[in-house]
Amino acid sequence: MNYHWNWGIFLEPVKSGDETYLDWLITGLGWTLAVSLTAWLLALTIGIAVGALRTTPSRLLVGLGNVWVELFRNVPLLVQMFLWFFVVPEFLPRDWSLWVKQEMPAKEFVTAAICLGLFTSARIAEQVRAGVGSLPRGQRDAALALGLTLPQAYRQVILPQALRIVIPPLTSEFMNVFKNSSVAFAIGVLELTFQARQMQEDSEQGIETYLAVTLLYFICAFTANRGMAWIEARTRVPGLIARSG
């Protein structure tokens, strides 16, 4: 088979409208960023909370945290997308269910962001738990001995240290969020992968399409990586690395 190259394809109009293929890809990038960043914020908030709960002395909280992590870790992300999109609305009270199915604005986007956010929160929770676990136990004791309550000790002493420790694994999680957002194509979010498939079918210039989209994902991952490196540098504490055990 021979391939007919056409690098000008991006500026050509799509078959069924007056947009160009480039417009499609730009829309795709926009939704990819929207889904990924929303999911990331959700994942950080919940992941840090759940991760911290799993290190508390309360067996109930630890158990709940473990259930959370196991639930999201043992079902494929794609299946979770379908669960949130098709199944969860069925379990809501009748009025809510109707609203979600018929009226909720940007339904695909909201569903994808929640799904990816919770999925990622379980992975962050695991990192945060490990980070807290790696701190010397004396830090908690010292905070409590000064009269801080346990929540204060977490906020002021334990989490600021644990989060610094987990920045490297969080960096790869952040890059994973962009990669995983591609699964949202399956519920009809118009993100990059969705647009790539659509453009490939519409234009029949698959290689150019995929190269462009691959490049865009690369840029996302690279930017995410640099962004986290910037945060890591900004939060670095003098002398902290020299301190051992």
Partner: peptide
């Protein structure tokens, strides 16, 4: 490791026949 698996799947499906 830096591109989404879905995209890798699409890439191979497109390119293998060539």
């Amino acid at each position: 490791r830096s591109i989404p698996l879905v995209l890798v799947i699409l890439w191979f499906f497109l390119v293998i026949p060539y």
